[in-house]
Amino acid sequence: METHSLEITGLTKKIGKKTILDNVDLKIKKGMIVGLIGPNGAGKTTTFKCCSGLSSITSGDILVNGHSVKKDFESAVEKLSYSYGSENLYPFYDACENIRSLLPLKVITKEDIRNALSVVGLEKVMNAKIKTYSLGMKQRLSLAMAFLGKPDIILLDEPFNGVDPQGVVEFRSIIRKHRDDHGTTFVISSHNLGEISKVIDSYVFMNHGHIVKSSSGLDSGKKVFTLVLSETGCISEYLEQLGTDVVVKGNRVTFLLESSELNGILQKLASENVTVYDMATESSLEKEYIEILGGENIE
């Protein structure tokens, strides 16, 4: 029997007459890294808030590790961690004091804190006051706090905001390693589709408070390539032979492929004396985002 870390059933959230979430159903398997994707106002943060008890639920229920957020709140959130940005720390405390004050019920040793801060690269500034931290450093501390207390499920809301490119790469590897080592389930919302696509196993598209589409798997290594060529005949046949979907419009060829396979395509084009005038790439997730949301609210 499959175990689900998170089961959302018929979740509806209304504020006044406005419906923020409308009958949302979602099941997330244990140990998965799932991307929650959608434009502003889609309901991603509200979903997270309902899961963590920060927002009340109008109807429906959420089970975290089998415990109902509505009926058994304390057990439900005991092994759940929600990181919602960087501006939720005590500015006059240092990192350790923030962790102790904001996670008062977690059993955390000094060693745990040191390790968590070391993983996110904050060990050297652990005694500095938070008001001296940059946005990226606060984001790193938030991530470290999310890992403390050995949670079974971690909700990360825009974890890459304000983080430098090197940090984003580190974040991805930290998340994957944590999942691999501890079997933790991650649900990550982000507008940075390129970055999120590199870390998630599957995704859920949300818009206007609904789940628009969810996938059980993701071709995370694949990208959508668009080439503008002097001649398209030979290459489209070649790509079809590889089993790739190809769309040809005039002298423009669009296809989905592993980045590592591109070299072979370019060599084929060179051998056929086909000139490449232009080339563009996008992640498969970005393409899907645009297709599903019809280009609305692209961020």
Binding site: S52, L80, N88, L89, S101, P104, L105
Partner: peptide, 14 residues
């Protein structure tokens, strides 16, 4: 004002 209430609410206590 520090937006820390959310973290306390999620601390595992009602």
């Amino acid at each position: 004002s520090n937006k820390t209430l959310g973290r306390l609410v999620m601390s595992g206590a009602s």
